[in-house]
């Protein structure tokens, strides 16, 4: 095995993760190889040095900004949940109103005969257009309606 091939073993040796057999083989090699011994020393020193690299403190007010953002997210999520349910509630309310109206319309009998002139009942049975004419304020329409009524009566 060349020194290059040993180097990954050296990296694992630095971390103490080699098996006993691998460790014994590598240490035997390092006893006779200056280059690999030097690699091992450098990698150990590198690992030790990296742990000393300091971390500067965060920007002023960073945690307040982060936590404010999280709180805002939490509130927004709750609002969005309520908002997303709103169409369902509106839909349900609209369905109830429509259903109630339909039931009312179906159960109520038409009361046209009680409120409209009895003459119009006769007209209604003959021709709907004649009804419109009879109800109109235009005197000419009344004349046309009367003529149609006479014709209807003569047919009966």
């Amino acid at each position: 095995m060349s020194c290059e091939q040993w180097s990954e073993q050296i990296s694992a040796w630095v971390d103490g993760v080699l098996s006993e057999v691998e460790k014994a083989a590598l240490e035997a090699h390092m006893r006779t190889c200056n280059a690999c011994r030097q690699t091992a020393n450098e990698l150990m020193e590198l690992k030790r040095g990296l742990r000393t690299v300091p971390v500067p403190p965060p920007r002023h007010g960073m945690w307040e900004r982060l936590l404010r953002h999280i709180r805002w997210q939490a509130q927004r999520k709750r609002f969005v949940t309520v908002k997303s349910l709103l169409p369902l509630w509106l839909g349900a309310a609209a369905s109830v109103v429509l259903l109630s109206s339909a039931i009312l319309l179906l159960t109520q009998k038409p009361k046209v005969s009680q409120t409209v002139n009895p003459q119009i009942n006769v007209l209604a049975s003959y021709h709907a257009d004649t009804v419109s004419l009879a109800l109109s304020d235009n005197p000419i329409c009344h004349l046309v309606a009367s003529a149609e009524l006479s014709e209807a009566e003569s047919h009966e």
Binding site: S7, E8, S11, D15, T39, L43, L46, K47, L50
Partner: peptide, 9 residues
């Protein structure tokens, strides 16, 4: 990790 260490070294 090994390749990263070689680059850093």
């Amino acid at each position: 990790l090994h390749r990263a260490r070689l680059l850093l070294r």
